[in-house]
Simulated assay, not measured.
Amino acid sequence: MKFKLALASAAFALSAGAQAQTAWDLPAAYPATNFHSVNLASFASDVDKATGGKLKITVHPGASLFKAPEIKRAVQGGQAQVGEILLTAYQNEWQMFGADGIPFLATSYAESKKLYAAQKPILQKKLAEQGMVLLYAVAWPPQGLYSKKPVASAADLKGSKWRAYSPATSRIAELVGAQPVTVQAAELSQALATGVVENNMTSGATGVDSKLYEHLKFYYDVQAWLPKNAVIANKKAFDALDKATQDALMKAAADAEARGWAASEKVNTDTLATLKANGMSVEPPSAALKSDLQKVGATMLQEWLGKAGPEGQQLIDAYRK
């Protein structure tokens, strides 16, 4: 009898422990080796340790659980409790999501952090309205121009197949006379191998992840913008956590944000060196190309302000203070 009682007590203890543990899934679009994904893994580990195993986050990199465009909806609808999204991809939904994708608005880490500081309060408010919580955001390295052929000015891009992954990248293609082709990061290598894409504006990090040097020979360090990835949580799932777990989660998020920005800067230096080491020509843009792209940026800022209205103007004014 005592033996049976002991077994029952042990089973109850195990059951109580299982009930006390909360499991979250975190879908992400980029490979496990990408610095954002590495940071997510560290974040999940920090949360596990800080909560004593009460909250366990499983990271699903490489679009293995949901494809990039599906992640925000999955978190919003509770199919995933937390996820990582590229903010600029959702500009058509709400213009403020695309602020960090306006070419030549913020072109350094210092400027990008300043833009994020202006953007963060309105991001938090919007996501809360949509049933989500902003945990943290980290910038990609500055976006450069990859091409199969040398590019001396925007005229050299006319008629070429340009990889688009957001409304902003599609619009740049249109303004330089290129043909936008929508390709997400996970399919980029294949698109290049099959000739679907000839030009691409992305970071050195994605260039190394996708081995762009196998297909494209020229990289121009135009530092067009620094788009951000944001890690967002489902608000109901967040609210269901006890206060101590919420606090531990937000502390781990703040640490991940600081670590992620530092990693981004290091990755920028390292990946450009890797591109060069693999035979890619890495050069600053010519004066003509820089001037052409700055005109594109000025046009796109005015277009964005026209769509964003007073809210957009307030954001730009706050950023430029």
Results as ranks from 00 to 15, higher is better:
Q190E: 15
V267S: 12
A287C: 08
A191D: 09
A28P: 00
K125F: 13
K54Y: 02
L249C: 04
P27I: 05
D46S: 08
S160N: 11
G207A: 01
S9L: 14
F35P: 01
W140F: 13
Q124G: 12
F35H: 01
L134Y: 03
Q21F: 09
T299S: 14
E111M: 12
G159S: 03
G195Y: 05
P142A: 08
E283Q: 10
K125D: 15
D25R: 01
P227A: 11
L188R: 03
P61D: 07
R163P: 01
N34M: 06
V282Q: 07
A191P: 02
Q184D: 13
T22K: 10
A237L: 06
Q179I: 14
K113A: 15
A205E: 03
K236C: 06
T269W: 10
L315D: 11
F35L: 03
A205S: 06
K2T: 15
S45Q: 11
A155E: 13
D221Q: 09
A253P: 07
A74I: 06
W24I: 01
A233W: 01
E257F: 10
Y220G: 08
S147V: 05
A29P: 08
R259L: 01
E70R: 10
P69M: 07
Q190C: 09
S37W: 03
M300K: 03
E198I: 02
L249S: 00
V296E: 02
V47N: 00
A258Q: 00
G312C: 03
P103S: 13
S45M: 04
G297D: 02
K2D: 15
K307A: 13
N39Y: 11
A44D: 04
K2L: 14
V183P: 08
L123D: 08
A240P: 09
G52E: 00
Y213R: 06
Q223M: 11
K72G: 09
P310N: 04
Q184R: 09
S64A: 09
K126H: 15
S291P: 06
K54F: 07
K251L: 09
A193F: 02
K251F: 02
A154R: 02
A273C: 14
F104H: 10
M250T: 01
K113R: 15
S45V: 06
Q143S: 14
V181I: 15
A10E: 09
T58L: 00
Q313G: 12
L145M: 08
G260L: 06
G144M: 03
A237K: 05
A50Q: 07
Y116G: 10
G309P: 08
L7I: 14
V183Y: 07
K236D: 15
